[in-house]
Amino acid sequence: MDLGSVIGMVLIFALLGSAMMMGVGIGPYIDIPSVLITIGGSVAALLISFKLEQMKNLFKYLGVAFKPPKYDVPALVKKLVDYATQARRDGILSLEQTANQEENDFLRKGLSMAVDGAEPDTIRELLEIDMEQTLGRHKANAGIFDTWAALGGAFGMIGTLIGLVAMLMNMSDPSTIGPAMAVALITTFYGALLGNVVGAPIASILLIRAGDEALVKQLIIEGIMSIQAGDNPRTLEAKLLAFLPPTQRISQFE
């Protein structure tokens, strides 16, 4: 579980809820027609904007935002250096069993191609296609929430306009103007809440998660290429450590 994302989401609702309670309470901010217009309308528009297969996995993408896959990059660097040491000592064919038992699908695919004697350009091309297509899918999934943020604000404004029309039609009774105006503005509130609490933040964190995965895959590609080329393990380690922040660049040869 990503503690930062969870704390941020809880803190937003806690602060907003506290501000409401110090005013008129939460009750006046609950309006079912506004929910139907803002949330229901924006979700219906999302169904038009994206493939049904993507929408079916909406909660899966939410799970990635709050519980992302963990990448132990320093451990991955050590593993690749160990593979390079073994390949340099015993030959690349000695990695065949290791490749078959590798848990990381992307690394297993690259190692298997290297052991099978595929051309370096072919290996790099296939792995980069895999990486780019995966990154493209992740960006498209993040785009759902980005679009949802925009649609939430738009449908909030639509709800406000609907409420204003209803209010203007009852101007003969001044006592109804205040409550009607409040209800009209609630849809704008819901739209802003949907866009700035759910849509935009989740789209942003999903893009960050996609970038993390792409970085790991790029590191693996460089590792596979060096292993196949028979590079010195120290040289490989220096290359791979460049992917890490300076504070995490710990060499196993020191």
Rank of each mutant, 00 (worst) to 15 (best):
D2I: 02
D2F: 07
L3Y: 12
L3K: 10
G4N: 15
S5K: 06
S5F: 06
V24F: 00
D31G: 00
I32N: 07
S49F: 11
F50L: 08
L52G: 03
K56V: 10
N57E: 15
F59P: 00
Y61P: 00
P68T: 08
P69C: 10
P69K: 13
V73G: 06
L76S: 12
E96A: 06
Q97F: 09
Q101L: 15
A114M: 05
A118I: 07
R124C: 13
L127I: 11
D130F: 14
E132W: 01
A150T: 09
G153D: 13
F155K: 03
G156E: 07
M157D: 08
M157L: 15
G159F: 01
G159K: 01
T160D: 01
I162H: 05
G163N: 00
L164R: 03
A166Y: 09
A166L: 08
N170E: 13
D173V: 04
D173W: 03
S175G: 11
S175D: 09
T176Y: 02
V183K: 08
A184G: 05
Y190V: 02
A192W: 11
L193A: 12
L193G: 02
G195R: 01
I202C: 02
A203N: 08
D212P: 00
V216K: 14
Q218H: 13
L219Q: 05
I224K: 09
I227G: 08
N232M: 07
P246G: 04
I250T: 14
S251G: 10
S251W: 13
Q252A: 15
F253N: 06
E254H: 10
